[in-house]
């Protein structure tokens, strides 16, 4: 039972208390959520949580089932890194003076970073990428006297052709029509 990083996508209704309903399933087992990102997904009215967590597969499979059991959750899926395309975004704030003394082109071009703002006092870089790429730029900018740094949670899409929740929604729509004799 070796620990590894898993990504969980949870599709939910857009309702109050869902974050609590999901997070309590982790905290009950003393599992630490490494990152969390929530937003509307491609299907109107459906929200998507992307959660990363380090544990072993059997544990995560059961966590996913318990998340899915919550009434307001539509569907939850467990992924490993090879099953998804994923990304993070980070912002770095560095004193402009020290940026000017360094090789800006190397920072921007060499790391695929962008400059968002240049102020006499500070410059803000943005970098999207995987965790290790963001950390690599962090290490470089730290030398220049990094003042602020923030990193988003992981966001991910699957390599499947559609949203994985679509099948479920289609099935439920047929159920609804059956129940209402439509």
């Amino acid at each position: 039972m070796e620990n590894q990083l898993f990504t969980i996508s949870v599709f939910t209704e857009n309702q109050v208390s869902l974050l609590h309903q999901i997070s309590m399933i982790f905290s009950r087992r003393c599992l630490n959520i490494e990152s969390l990102s929530v937003s509307a997904c491609s299907i109107p009215g459906v929200h998507k949580f992307t959660i990363t967590c380090c544990s072993y597969r059997a544990m995560m499979e059961h966590v996913v089932k318990q998340i899915e059991k919550r009434i307001d959750v539509l569907k939850a899926f467990l992924h490993t890194d090879d099953e998804i395309v994923f990304q993070e975004v980070a912002l770095y704030k560095v004193p402009t003076a020290s940026v000017l003394e360094s090789n800006i082109e190397d920072i921007v071009r060499g790391n695929g970073a962008r400059v968002l703002e240049i102020h006499p006092e500070y410059t803000v870089f943005e970098k999207t990428g995987h965790t290790d790429e963001i950390t690599e730029l962090f290490d470089k900018l730290k030398v220049l006297g990094l003042r602020q740094f923030v990193r988003s949670g992981r966001i991910a899409v699957t390599k499947a052709p559609e949203e994985l929740v679509s099948d479920y929604l289609d099935r439920q729509e047929r159920r609804r029509q059956d129940i209402n004799n439509e």
Binding site: T12, I71, L74, L169, R171, Q172, R175, R176, I179, N180
Partner: peptide, 8 residues
């Protein structure tokens, strides 16, 4: 209530 989309 006879149907909830997120519940089967």
């Amino acid at each position: 209530c006879t149907f909830i989309r997120s519940y089967d």
